[in-house]
Amino acid sequence: MKRSDLFFNIAIPVLFVGIVTLVVYKFIIKEQNPGLFAVKELSNISVVDLNNNKLALTDLLDKENETYCFLFELTNCYSCILEGLEDLKKIRKAGSFCIAIVVHDLIEEVQGWSNTQDFSPFFMIKKIDFYRNIQSSTMPVLFSLKGGEVKRFRFITP
């Protein structure tokens, strides 16, 4: 076999396989991006209850089991908010501690809104505390905390 034939017989198939692999990885296989949710310093986060008392979030959490938190803004998709609250009710029935946290700066707005819902307790996290301590690709998000760490999370989007 000539040297040039050997080149074509080996190099071209290798090149072809390389191109196909590149195309498949680059354009066909779409990596599932789960989104980002992270709590930076749990001990730094304070929330406000509906009586306007400031509380450390860590003081609200179940010390031994997971605590489920539903975090949302009042301007989020309404059906998504209701789905999150319904999920909290189901999780609570299964025996876990659940709270809802609204990102807002005015407790009166959260008070008024929460009175239209069949769930409690509601808390408010101020926007500045939210931005400083929580990273979330989208909202609303339902997450669980245990031992100071996020154990699981799920974005609830339309």
């Binding site: 309404y78 059906s79 209701l82 707005e109 809104w113 009175n115 239209t116």
Partner: peptide, 11 residues
């Protein structure tokens, strides 16, 4: 003042 209504589940 603000008046809050108990709205339904959907749009």
């Amino acid at each position: 003042k603000t008046v809050w209504l108990k709205r339904g589940k959907f749009v």
